[in-house]
Design a protein around this nucleic acid. Structure first.
Lengths: 355, 355
DNA sequence: CTGAAAGCGCTAACAC
DNA sequence: GTGTTAGCGCTTTCAG
């Protein structure tokens, strides 16, 4: 709360100082060529001298056009989302738009508020990566025909343009990698099953296990949305009488918690246990052992999002498109062959069976 | 660019539907008690039915007050800044404000643009963590009396409220830790010396070396603002004939690059070389070896920033305040005693000398 | 308590 | 080319 009318000079001031009319000043500052060079100079000079700064609230209100795009992100702590932010900022800038970032902090209520906030600022378009339990938040968008692209945590049933990773397939690939290494007791640790993509990841894992005849070993554990929860959960998993030989973490938080738990349990990666992480991060390739991960194609996703949004901004294509991207496996050092000593006969037999 | 006048219902629509005047509707929606309950109900009902959403551009334009705070951040890739973002969002929300995040991506030009953008949206206040070479960007703020707090990459000479970490002291502490472990050949790797805080950190390191009689071993290496640069730089450092026994990285990027270089060089942490990182990150405590680091008190800094900003928002205290926070050392596993075999006689003698 | 009316700073017709 | 004018959607006096 603060009125600062004291100093801010307005277009009127500039026009007066330049000795032209308000309309002319407006045109000049908007870059119109239809004003004589002499006056253009006068106006620019006056603006400079007065330290004039356009009030874009007024400009946008009057013209009913905005060059801002609202981007609602659930978690700035996740480097995948940050990559998206950076890439999208570049795309937006290139097309003459600006991003207004809104951070939901994985809280559906806050997300709803963020959406309301962004919408009330009359953005030209929106990009949303929802939190879990976002139905309520999304209902903020009803009866609102802002160009919209949803990403990552949505599926193809969503009645809007979406860009997602094929999580099911990626999780199958990851699981197959682990199985090929001889692992049978593979536990999948996931943040929350009410996130569509996490559910897909878990499903991909289960399908891969089943396809390998390992359905009886399939074990999906939900670890929550925080480090501490996932740490505690993984500690529990590791303390089981039949400890898994491999962990597949289905999300950023899960990986952090699992890693800390593995460390606390005094286990070595990959000799005592293997770990595969869904979602890559810069630090994963920097230490020894490097963490094997599934990397989502952030750049491609951002490009897809912007493509879909931009088309709408230009008034094109009202039909809904669902883009689906392929993630790839980055095998590093945290996934290794299972230790023979740990295999029972049944596991050995299963290993012999073709996948 | 998009006019969507088609559906968006305005306050006038609501007033008409509720059968009251525009002014009354405005008052009700603003929460005024001075309207009869019956009419209040009517207005709310009409607003609900029409899916009314306030146009805050218009509201703020008219009332000359905003509840948005611009926060210009140089690098969302750095978890320290992310911590600041999260904490500040909470503070702002608690006081009824909202953050508008603007990402400068370590680019002074983009930073200038971001500042202009935020300012043109008539924010009530600003928080800025500058990039290097920010002088130009900052000049955007001239003749502009928005409440302002600068943080992190500024020093006490800045003519505005600032909140910073005592980098000099923290770097001295870190260096002393390394020296106490017997290290003599300690190299300080820093992103850029035109960042005030990096400069302070380097200075702290040098002062500590000097104080320990190790001035001849002091070596500050600049590694640039990107992973790849810092990786290459560190590789060079490690290839020197007299390889340092410890690295002290003065920034986030430097740590990442150094770690990758150490890995590529086939060196073990901390047996072959020790590493201390200025700036902590969640992943540093999750793997083995844990990375010893200097942790800036992000929460306290955020609190300080908000405190200073909030005072200004309430029109208090025009005198400038400089808050300075203390960082602490988190000793983990990446810093260990120097290997005896590597010591020459001179080093041995230096080690015997009290610090 | 309620409505009418005057703008916030700016853009976009529209006349001259 | 240039100035005048009518609002964008809203808040806020100010009469009644």
């Amino acid at each position: 709360m603060d009125d600062r009318k004291k100093s801010a000079s307005t277009l009127k001031d500039v026009a007066n100082a330049a000795g032209v009319s308000l309309g002319t000043a407006s045109k000049v500052l908007a870059g119109a060529a239809s004003v004589s060079e002499a006056r253009q100079r006068q106006v620019w000079e006056a603006a400079r001298k007065l330290g004039y700064r356009r009030n874009s609230l007024a400009a946008e209100l009057r013209s009913c056009r905005s060059t801002s795009i609202g981007f609602v992100v659930p978690d700035l702590t996740n480097s995948f989302f940050i990559e998206l932010v950076c890439a999208l900022e570049d795309h937006a800038l290139e097309s003459g738009y600006r991003l207004i970032l809104a951070h939901a902090q994985e809280d559906p209520e806050r997300e709803a508020e963020r959406i309301r906030f962004v919408l009330s600022r009359q953005v030209a378009g929106m990009i949303i990566i929802p939190c879990h339990g976002y139905e309520h938040a999304i209902s903020e968008l009803r009866e609102c025909d802002v160009p919209l692209v949803m990403a990552d945590r949505v599926d193809n049933s969503f009645p809007a343009n979406t860009v997602t990773t094929d999580s099911h397939r990626a999780a199958m690939d990851g699981t197959a990698h682990l199985i090929a290494l001889g692992h049978r007791r593979i536990t999948f640790i996931v943040n929350a099953l009410d996130l569509v993509n996490s559910r897909e990841r878990a499903q991909g894992y289960q399908d891969a296990m089943q396809r390998a005849g390992l359905a009886q070993h399939a074990n999906v554990v939900v670890c929550g949305m925080s480090d501490t929860e996932s740490h505690a959960t993984t500690l529990g998993v590791l303390a089981a009488r039949e400890r898994p030989t491999a962990l597949f973490t289905g999300a950023n938080v899960a990986t952090l918690g699992a890693l800390r738990a593995i460390r606390d349990a005094g286990l070595q990666l990959p000799d005592d246990i293997s770990l595969l992480s869904f979602d890559d991060a810069p630090w994963m390739s920097v230490l020894r052992p490097g963490i094997s991960s599934i990397r989502q194609p952030a750049e491609a996703i951002a490009r897809g999002i912007w493509h879909l949004l931009h088309k709408q901004l230009q008034g094109e294509s009202p039909e809904i498109v669902h883009l689906r991207m392929r993630a790839d496996l980055r095998v590093r050092d945290s996934t290794g062959p299972v230790r023979n000593g740990e295999w029972g006969e049944a596991a050995r037999a299963a290993a012999a069976r073709p996948l």
